[in-house]
Design a protein around this nucleic acid. Structure first.
Length: 940
DNA sequence: GCGAGAGG
DNA sequence: CCTCTCGC
C-alpha cells in the first residue's frame, strides 16, 4: 500500500457500544412485531453507519468479549462480579449485532481469555507501528492508557454530547497526569466500581491525582509511605498489594497473541443482500430505505469511491491525498456535504395528546433543548404557528404540527407550556427571538436561559454570514433541506408553510432543530477559546428577552398628523419640481440622479470640473449641491425637493402602512447580528433613523406618541457617550477633566485647539472642534476633516495637529489601537467583543487605511453598544422586579425610549439614569439626560 | 447594485 | 465610522 493511501483504522469496542445503545433505548424500547427488542441493534447500526459515512475509515474491526473467563478473573476472583446480571435484551442482541457487523463485511474479533480492551489495545499498538492512525471507539475511560501520538480515543456522540476525540494531551488533561500510562495508576488507586476493581480505600480521583503528582506510580507510592501521614499512610501500607493488583487489572494488555493483518481489516463496503435480509427480519424499514435507496446508496458508497478509498480507485488521486493527510478526524471533511438523505437521523412526527405528553416527559428532564417554530409568515408579529420542532440529542428530533384551527393549536401549546416556562432548561435556537415572539403572541412567555446559535456565530465571526444553511455547511459539512424546495423562491409567489405536505415539513423542521443543536456543540469551544463566553451568556443572550418585549410592545404613531403632513409635502414638492424644470428649461425625471447630473453639468454646465461617481455618472450628492447652492437657485431647489421626497416616501407614507392590524402599533425588528461593531440595527421599519435635524423632519418625530392619555413618552439618552469612552480608553487628563467638571466638551476642545480662553470661543470654532471630535472617533484623516468642514486640507491638518498636541494621550491611544490591530489582526471592545481587521497589514493603501480607521472606531462604537446593551438588560430586569406597567419600546444607539405610565414617571426618572450610567464602570462620569413629553420630539 | 439621504 | 430604505 502506498503512503498516499489512507491508513485510518477504527477499532470498535462492541460491548461498550452495545451497553450504550441499550441504555439509550431503555426508556422507550423498540419492539418489533415478533416481540423482539431491537433497540440495541438499531443503536449499534446507527453508530456504525455514522462512523462509516462521517469518518470514512480505510480499515475497521469490531471487538467482542467472550463468555470465557479471562486472565483477570484468574488474578482476582471477584473481578467484574459486581456487575449486575447482563440484561436479557443484551444477551439476545449480541448474536444479532455480530451478524450485522458481518453483513457490513467487517471482521469480528474475539478471543477466549481476553477482553475486547486487550484485543483493541494490542491491535492499536501494532497498527500504529505500521503507520496507521488509529481510533479506538468506546466510551470506556480505561482506554486512555493506550492513547499515543497516532492512537486516539474516539468517544461517540451521546446524550447531547458531540463526538469527543482524545489524544495524549487531552487524556493527560482530563486526569491531570503527566503521561497516559498513569491512567492505570489512577484506576489502580481509586478503583473502578463498575468492574469491581478495589483500588485503595480512602483514595478517590482527587487524592489519586495528588499522590501521582508526587510519586508518579503506584509502586513508587508504596515504596515511600514514610512520606505519608495518618490514616492515608495506614491505608496505603495495609492495601499495598491490593493497589498493585488493581493496577494490573486496570492495565489493558498490548501483547495479546493476535496478528495484525492489514488486508483483513480493510473496509470494502457492505454486503447489500445480507444486510437487507437482516434489516427485514428486524423490521428496520426507515433505516433500510435510507441506506438502500438510490440516493442514499450513492451518497454512502459512491462518495467514498470518489475519494479513492475503496476498490481499485487510483492511489495517486490528488483529492485523496489532500483529503487524508489530515490527522484529526475533525478536519477530514468529506468533499460532498451530507444531506438529509445521506446522514443518519431519526426525525419523528408527534401528533396527539398522548404522544405530545410522552415527548414532554423526555423534554422536561433535559438540561439543554433546541426548538424551532415553523410559521406562515416572516414577520413574527403576524405569523401563525404551523408546527414546533424539538431536539436534545444529535441526530434525533421531533416535530409537532399545529393545525390551522387556532383553538387546537392553543391546546397543543397548553401541553407544551411546562417546557417553555421551565427556568432550568437551556433553550437553544437559531434566531430564537423570532420564535419567542411568535410564542408570545400565543400568550407563552418562554423562561430560562437562552442560547442563540446565530448570536454565537455573530460573536465568533462578526462580519460573517449567520444563516443556518451557511453555518451547517461550514461547521457540519451538511447541506440542509432548502426552504425554497418547500415553499418556492422568495417574493410574491412564495408559498405558505401551511400548505406544504406535513411529512416534508417534519423533515425540514426536525432537521433545523437537529442542526441547530449540533451547531451549538461546535460553537461552545469557539466561544471559550475567544473569551466570548461572558459577552455571550451575560449580555447578548439575556438581551434577547429585552428585545422580544420591545418588539412585542411596538410604538404608537399618530396617523392623522402624518396624513396631513403627506398632503403638505405632496403639494410643496410638486411646486418645487415645477420650479426646477423652469430653471433647467427642460422636463426630466428629477428623481433620477443620472438624468439630473446630465442636466446640471452637461446642459447647464454649472461646474466645468464636476466630479463623477465610480460608475461614470455625475455626482449630485448633498455636499456638491450645497456648494452650488449659493450661486444657483436650482441647486437649493433640488435639495429641498430631495428632502421632501425622502421624508414623504421613507417615513410619512411608509410608516402608516407598517401598523400592525391587531395591535394598531408599529413593531420594528431589532437585528442583533448585522452591525459588525456590535450595535443593534432596526428594520421593517427602521426606527433608528427617524428624522430630527431639520424642521420638517421633526414633524415626523412628533407623530411618535405615547400609548394613551395615561402615558407619556420618556426618552433617556447618553450624553457624548463615544467621546467619553475615548477619554476613558485614552486616559487623557484634560479630556477626563472636562467631563468631570461637566463642561461643554466641544467648546473646551475649541478653546484648546484654537488657543483662546473658553469665553472667546466662537460658534464657528465650536463647530470645527465638534467636527474634529467626531472625526477623532471615526479615526479621521486630514482629508476627511477637510471634506466635512469644507476647508482646505492644510487647515484641517493644522486642526488635527493642534488637537493631538493638546490631547497627547488620545494620539497615543489611536497609535496603540492600530499597533494592536497589526499584531493581532483584531481589536476588541470593553466587553471583549472582537472585530477582525485582516486588511490592517495589507499593502493596499486604501484597504489598510480603512482597517486603521476601523481599529479606532470599532472599539469605541462597539463599547458604547456594549454599554447600552447591559443598561437595557439592567433596566428591563429592574422594571420587571418592580412590576411596572411602563414599557421600554425603542433603542437608538445611545437612547432608550419608554412608554411611561403617568403614575410611574417619577420612579422611572429616579432610577433609569443611574441604571444606565452604572451599567459598565468607566473612568469618566457617564451622564444620562431624561426628557418627557406626549410625543418623541417633546421627550427628546 | 448603486446613489442618495435619514439616523447614530 | 456604523446602519437602513428609497427609487432608478
Amino acid at each position: 500500500m502506498s503512503q498516499n493511501q489512507p491508513h485510518k483504522l477504527f477499532l470498535l469496542d462492541a460491548m461498550a457500544l452495545i451497553y450504550r445503545a441499550h441504555f439509550a433505548f431503555s426508556k422507550n424500547p423498540r419492539i418489533n412485531s415478533k416481540g423482539l427488542n431491537t433497540g440495541v441493534m438499531l443503536g449499534f447500526t446507527n453508530t456504525l453507519m455514522e462512523v462509516l459515512t462521517k469518518e470514512k475509515p480505510s480499515h475497521i474491526a469490531v471487538a467482542f468479549d467472550t463468555s470465557a473467563p479471562t486472565f483477570r478473573h484468574e488474578q482476582f476472583e471477584p473481578y467484574k462480579a459486581n456487575r449486575q446480571e447482563q440484561p436479557e435484551d443484551i444477551t439476545v442482541s449480541i448474536p444479532w449485532v455480530k451478524e450485522i457487523v458481518k453483513a457490513f463485511r467487517i471482521p469480528v474479533l474475539e478471543m477466549d481469555g481476553f477482553e475486547a480492551d486487550d484485543i483493541i489495545g494490542t491491535l492499536a499498538k501494532k497498527a500504529e507501528r505500521e503507520s496507521f492512525t488509529v481510533y479506538m471507539m468506546t466510551p470506556d475511560k480505561d482506554y486512555g492508557q493506550i492513547v499515543d501520538d497516532h492512537i486516539y480515543l474516539y468517544k461517540p456522540a451521546f446524550m447531547g454530547n458531540g463526538v469527543d476525540v482524545m489524544g495524549p494531551k487531552e487524556v493527560c488533561a482530563k486526569w491531570d497526569i503527566e503521561h497516559v500510562d498513569q491512567v492505570r495508576d489512577i484506576l489502580g488507586l481509586m478503583g473502578d466500581a463498575v468492574d469491581n476493581i478495589p483500588g485503595i480505600p480512602g483514595i478517590g480521583a482527587k487524592t489519586a491525582t495528588k499522590l501521582l503528582k508526587e510519586f508518579g506510580t503506584v509502586e513508587e507510592l508504596i515504596k515511600n509511605t514514610d512520606k505519608l501521614k495518618g490514616k492515608q499512610k495506614e491505608n496505603v501500607e495495609n492495601f499495598a498489594q491490593q493497589g498493585i493488583l488493581s493496577k494490573e487489572l486496570a492495565t489493558i494488555k498490548i501483547d495479546v497473541p493476535i496478528a495484525f493483518n492489514e488486508e483483513d481489516l480493510r473496509y470494502d463496503g457492505f454486503d447489500e443482500e445480507k444486510l437487507r435480509a437482516i434489516f427485514n427480519e428486524l423490521e428496520f424499514r426507515t433505516l433500510s430505505n435510507r441506506i438502500f435507496k438510490d440516493e442514499g446508496k450513492k451518497a454512502v458508497i459512491q462518495k467514498n469511491e470518489q475519494l479513492g478509498l475503496f476498490g481499485e480507485a487510483p492511489s495517486s488521486s490528488p483529492a485523496s491525498e489532500i483529503e487524508f493527510e489530515e490527522e484529526s478526524v475533525n478536519t477530514s471533511a468529506p468533499v460532498v456535504p451530507d444531506t438529509i438523505h445521506s446522514n443518519l437521523h431519526h426525525y419523528h412526527k408527534i401528533k396527539g395528546k398522548d404522544a405530545i405528553e410522552e415527548l414532554m416527559e423526555y423534554l422536561m428532564v433535559q438540561k439543554v433543548v433546541c426548538f424551532d417554530t415553523e410559521t406562515t409568515a416572516l414577520n413574527a408579529m403576524e405569523a401563525e404557528l404551523v408546527g414546533i420542532s424539538f431536539a436534545y440529542l444529535s441526530g434525533e428530533a421531533y416535530y409537532i404540527p399545529c393545525p390551522a384551527d387556532q383553538k387546537e393549536t392553543q391546546a397543543i401549546l397548553e401541553l407544551l407550556m411546562p417546557f417553555f416556562e421551565n427556568e432550568d432548561i437551556l433553550k437553544v435556537g437559531q434566531n430564537i427571538k423570532y420564535d419567542l415572539l411568535v410564542l408570545k403572541n400565543y400568550g407563552i412567555e418562554v423562561k430560562g436561559a437562552l442560547y442563540d446559535t446565530m448570536l454565537a456565530h455573530y460573536l465568533i465571526e462578526p462580519e460573517g454570514k449567520h444563516s443556518m444553511d451557511w453555518l451547517a455547511e461550514q461547521y457540519l459539512n451538511y447541506k440542509p433541506v432548502s426552504i425554497t424546495e418547500l415553499i418556492g423562491k422568495k417574493g410574491k409567489n412564495q408559498g405558505n408553510m401551511r400548505d406544504v405536505d406535513e411529512d416534508e415539513v417534519t423533515s425540514y423542521a426536525a432537521e433545523d432543530a437537529d442542526i441547530t443543536l449540533r451547531l451549538k456543540e461546535k460553537f461552545d469551544p469557539l466561544l471559550k477559546e475567544n473569551e466570548l463566553e461572558n459577552l455571550f451568556y451575560k449580555v447578548e443572550n439575556p438581551l434577547i428577552n429585552v428585545l422580544t418585549d420591545m418588539e412585542f410592545e411596538g410604538v404608537k404613531i399618530d396617523t392623522d398628523s402624518l396624513a396631513e403632513l403627506s398632503q403638505a409635502l405632496e403639494e410643496e414638492s410638486i411646486a418645487i419640481e415645477k420650479r426646477v424644470y423652469e430653471l433647467a428649461g427642460v422636463r426630466f425625471n428629477l428623481a433620477s440622479p443620472k438624468q439630473l447630473g446630465d442636466v446640471l453639468f452637461e446642459k447647464l454646465k454649472l461646474d466645468p470640473k464636476a466630479k463623477k461617481t465610480k460608475t461614470g455618472q455625475y455626482a449630485t450628492g448633498e455636499e456638491i449641491l450645497s456648494k452650488l447652492a449659493d450661486e444657483h437657485e436650482i441647486a437649493q431647489a433640488i435639495l429641498d425637493y430631495r428632502q421632501m421626497v425622502k421624508l414623504k416616501s421613507t417615513y410619512v407614507d411608509a410608516l402608516p402602512t407598517m401598523i400592525n392590524s391587531k395591535t394598531g402599533r408599529i413593531h420594528t425588528t431589532y437585528n442583533q447580528f448585522v452591525a459588525a461593531t456590535g450595535r443593534l440595527s432596526s428594520i421593517n421599519p427602521n426606527l433608528q433613523n427617524i428624522p430630527i435635524r431639520t424642521e420638517r423632519g421633526r414633524e415626523i418625530r412628533k407623530a411618535f406618541v405615547a400609548r394613551d392619555e395615561n402615558h407619556v413618552l420618556l426618552a433617556a439618552d447618553y450624553s457624548q457617550i463615544e467621546l467619553r469612552i475615548m477619554a476613558a480608553f485614552s486616559g487623557d487628563e484634560s479630556m477626563i477633566e472636562a467631563f468631570k467638571n461637566g463642561r461643554d466638551i466641544h467648546a473646551t476642545t475649541a478653546a484648546k485647539i484654537f488657543q483662546v480662553p473658553l469665553e472667546e470661543v466662537t460658534s464657528d470654532m465650536r463647530r470645527k472642534a465638534k467636527t474634529a471630535n467626531f472625526g477623532i472617533i471615526y479615526g479621521i484623516s486630514a482629508f476627511g476633516l477637510s471634506q466635512r468642514l469644507s476647508i482646505p486640507r492644510g487647515e484641517a491638518k493644522e486642526i488635527i495637529d493642534a488637537y493631538f498636541k493638546e490631547f497627547p494621550a488620545v494620539k497615543e491611544y489611536m497609535d496603540g489601537a492600530i499597533e494592536k490591530a497589526r499584531k493581532d489582526e483584531y481589536v476588541e471592545t470593553i466587553l471583549g467583543r472582537r472585530r477582525y481587521l485582516r486588511d490592517i497589514n495589507s499593502r493596499n493603501q486604501t484597504m489598510r487605511g480603512f482597517a486603521e480607521r476601523n481599529a479606532i472606531n470599532a472599539p469605541i462604537q462597539g463599547s458604547a453598544a456594549d454599554l447600552i446593551k447591559v443598561a437595557m438588560i439592567d433596566v428591563h430586569n429592574w422594571m420587571k422586579k418592580e412590576k411596572l406597567k411602563s414599557k421600554m419600546i425603542l433603542q437608538v444607539h445611545d437612547e432608550l425610549v419608554f412608554d411611561a405610565h403617568k403614575d410611574e414617571v417619577e420612579i422611572l426618572k429616579e432610577n433609569i439614569p443611574g441604571l444606565m450610567s452604572n451599567a459598565i464602570k468607566l473612568a469618566v462620569p457617564v451622564e444620562v439626560e431624561v426628557g418627557l413629553g406626549k410625543d418623541w420630539l417633546e421627550a427628546h
